[in-house]
Amino acid sequence: MRKFSSCLGAALLALSFTAGAQVVDVKSAWARASVPGQKATGAFMTLTAPAGATLVGVRSPAAGVAEVHEMKMDGDVMKMRAIPSLALPAGQAVELKPGGYHLMLLDLKAPLAKDSQVPITLVLRDAKGVESQLELKVPVQAVAPAGGMAGHSH
């Protein structure tokens, strides 16, 4: 029953975003659980902008700072850095995942407990330059969800 109600909640949330101008579809969203004393964690999802868009910011009341990050090899060293924006080409799924593009929640105000939800706001700019915000309630998991939660969207 719990799984059904969470799926129903996700479906209702998805409907609320399709009622207006839909800039981006969000699927398979999750955030990594943290432990007391841990000050940072990541959030992951797949973003698809039907008409193209740019992710230009992220916020969360759970963190003092939230940023869009990328991880990439620099010679023999994997480096992570904040990036000012992330292009979402029209109709192409952009995966935010461990070891690649992702959202970083820094200066956590409290641990993110497994099986809770964390509010995250995506700031997007559509192909015409109009900014919008997308409010998400992202499930917190200890590890990546099995099967990628392909049926969930926001």
Rank of each mutant, 00 (worst) to 15 (best):
F44Y: 15
V94K: 06
W30H: 02
P98D: 04
Q38M: 05
Q22K: 03
V118S: 02
V123L: 08
V77E: 09
H152M: 15
H69Y: 14
R125L: 00
H152A: 13
L103G: 04
D126V: 01
V118F: 01
G99W: 00
D107V: 03
L136E: 01
S60K: 06
V23S: 04
L134Y: 11
A43Q: 07
K109V: 03
D76A: 15
A90E: 03
L13T: 12
S16N: 06
L105S: 11
V143S: 13
E95S: 13
V77N: 10
G42E: 00
G64M: 04
D76C: 12
L13I: 10
A11Y: 00
A62E: 09
K72G: 05
G129Q: 08
A10E: 03
K72L: 08
A31E: 14
V56H: 07
A40S: 10
M1P: 11
T41W: 02
L103D: 04
S153G: 13
D76V: 14
P145S: 13
A21V: 08
L108W: 06
A43G: 10
A93E: 04
L15Q: 05
F44D: 03
G99N: 01
L55Q: 04
T48W: 03
R125P: 04
S6F: 13
A43Y: 04
T48N: 09
L124F: 03
G151S: 03
L103W: 05
K128Y: 01
K27P: 01
A11D: 01
A150R: 12
L134D: 15
G37P: 12
S6P: 07
A150F: 02
V118L: 02
A144N: 11
M80N: 14
G75V: 04
A33Y: 10
S5P: 02
M78R: 07
Q133M: 15
W30L: 00
A150L: 14
G75E: 06
S132T: 15
L12R: 07
L136M: 13
A29E: 02
L96T: 02
L136V: 07
H69D: 01
G64R: 08
K27L: 12
F17A: 13
M71P: 06
K27M: 05
Q92H: 10
L55M: 01
S85E: 15
S132L: 03
L86V: 11
L105C: 14
L122M: 12
Y101C: 06
G64K: 04
L112Q: 11
Q133A: 12
K109H: 06
V35Y: 15
D76E: 15
S132A: 14
L96E: 15
D107S: 13
S34V: 12
M149S: 14
G52N: 09
P61S: 14
G148Q: 00
L122K: 01
P145W: 13
A142T: 10
K72I: 04
P36R: 07
Q92N: 09
K79F: 01
L108Y: 10
V68S: 05
A90Y: 03
V23I: 12
V130E: 11
L47I: 05
A49T: 02
V65K: 15
G91H: 08
P139R: 13
H69R: 09
D25W: 11
Q92Y: 00
W30P: 00
M73Q: 06
I120G: 09
L103Y: 09
D126I: 04
A29Q: 10
M45S: 10
Q22T: 11
D115V: 10
L103T: 06
K114Y: 12
A40D: 07
A29I: 04
D115C: 06
G37F: 01
G20A: 06
